[in-house]
């Protein structure tokens, strides 16, 4: 590849290194980046940008699906090896029958624990991937919590008064240019004195 790589090619190199399992990237990372560079150069020579957009979309899908499939395959192989190691040795008459009704549950817990251990080992081996994954989770959870707290306080929870549905805000209307304006002190006094519609009238200020 040339020294002045397009930004998208550099991004692809970084992403492939982060997402793909280390062993696959170590064996073929350079080949992948060069093939992507060649494909991008070909797409960039076309007059429309749609070719480049299609290439990038296709490559991202390929990258993510390969990362998931390769990690799943590695996990399957490890699980198979663990199962082979854990198999009890018999005296040539095959495996003894398992009559314990709890063994299914125990197997399930073993499998979950094995998954958790494997995940932690993988995260430790790929610290960049781990940081990206944890930061993405933290940002997602934080953003969700913030949006929910706003929606909850503004839309879902009623105002902290006895009959919040009977509360009204009164504005003054000065025509088309100023249809909704705050009340002045004298206006409030006038409304309070002439009030026949509301049980009570009160005033508040937004000033600190």
């Amino acid at each position: 590849m040339s020294p002045a790589l397009p930004r998208i090619v550099r991004l692809y190199c970084g992403l492939s290194r982060t997402l793909l399992p280390h062993d696959l990237w170590a064996e073929h990372g350079r080949d992948m980046n060069e093939a992507f560079y060649d494909l991008y150069t070909e797409a960039a020579s076309k007059p429309t940008v749609s070719e480049r957009a299609r290439l990038i979309g296709r490559e991202l899908i390929s990258l993510f699906s390969t990362a998931i499939e390769e990690r799943r395959s590695t996990r399957r192989q490890r699980r198979h090896l663990l199962a082979l190691r854990a198999r009890p040795r018999t005296s040539g008459h095959g495996q003894p029958p398992d009559n314990n009704p709890l063994s299914g549950i125990t197997d399930m817990f073993d499998s979950v624990l094995s998954d958790v251990r494997y995940t932690l080992r993988t995260l430790r081996k790929s610290p960049v991937f781990a940081v990206v994954a944890i930061a993405t989770l933290a940002l997602g959870i934080g953003a969700n919590a913030a949006v929910f707290s706003v929606i909850n306080s503004v839309l879902l929870r009623p105002l902290p008064y006895e009959a919040p549905e009977d509360l009204y805000v009164v504005w003054t209307n000065f025509g088309r240019d100023l249809p909704q304006n705050w009340l002045s002190g004298p206006e409030f006094v006038e409304i309070r004195d002439l009030n026949t519609r509301f049980e009570e009238v009160a005033i508040y200020t937004g000033a600190a």
Partner: peptide
């Protein structure tokens, strides 16, 4: 059939 580069090299390996 248009292979992505990572799909190709996973198959190559």
């Amino acid at each position: 059939m248009v292979l992505g580069t990572s799909t190709l090299y996973a198959a190559v390996r």
